[in-house]
Design a protein around this nucleic acid. Structure first.
Lengths: 122, 122
DNA sequence: TCTGGTCCTGGCCACCCGGCCAGTTTCGCA
DNA sequence: TGCGAAACTGGCCGGGTGGCCAGGACCAGA
């Protein structure tokens, strides 16, 4: 029997939205093995809220999301083509669409924009 | 219609320590009202690790930070050179150092790595 | 049926990027 | 007085990138 010999995980909340913070506090307060940090207490883990203003509002196709994810990993067009089993020309086609939709000047800018707007997680 | 039909809170984990991440995933996975984000899915809340011991900031020079910041804005080497008042060759020199220090394969990968490690904010 | 969107592919070309070689100056430290 | 680190500059070159042209296949909806 593996008991809870592991120490409790102390977590603190850094949520702007009071309603969301309240809900989370109620939900997490009842979890055994977790404990909300006392005011000023050093927590081992922090829950942070994403700014609700940055919702992924951009309409990207599934294929564009595939290409975007690989771009964020630093993959070249050739690598992406091999990974997805398509030609380099098709990858360029999707990259071009991404640059257009994300209003970016290049692949680096596209990844930065996508991360900022919550389309992808780095 | 503001009943308790409140949508599930989607949260993602950004924990360096695999053991801690695993414990948290198990604990939080059983909480009704919460749901762990699928890979790549944008979460409304993020759980981040606050381990002060793991803060070995990468040693970047001031000039490298200047170049890195402009790279994250999608600037080309020519633009960076003009912005900093130096030659394109010097920009390439700093970019090369950044790729080496950040263990990146290209400028896009370098920006992603830097953002992940907290060196820059997107 | 026809239109529009998505996905796929090819060629062509100017430009950019990253790596290689070489060098200079300045500054702090031993 | 030397020595290394940082910053800066140049030339060269293979390969990558992005924009332009063209096309075809598939499928949902008007």
């Amino acid at each position: 029997m593996s008991e809870d010999n592991a120490p409790e995980i102390v977590l603190s909340l850094e949520i702007d939205d009071p309603a969301l913070a309240d809900r989370l506090a109620k939900l997490l307060g009842n979890v055994t093995g977790l404990r909300l940090a006392a005011p000023g207490e050093a927590a081992s883990v922090t829950v942070v809220a994403r700014d609700p203003r940055i919702r992924p509002d951009i309409a990207l196709t599934q294929r564009e999301l595939d290409v975007l994810a690989l771009m964020a990993e630093g993959a070249s067009n050739k690598m992406i083509a091999r990974q997805l089993g398509i030609s380099v020309h098709t990858v360029k086609f999707h990259v071009g669409s991404l640059l257009d939709k994300l209003d970016a000047t290049g692949r680096t800018d596209a990844v930065a924009h996508a991360a900022r707007r919550g389309v992808i997680e780095l």
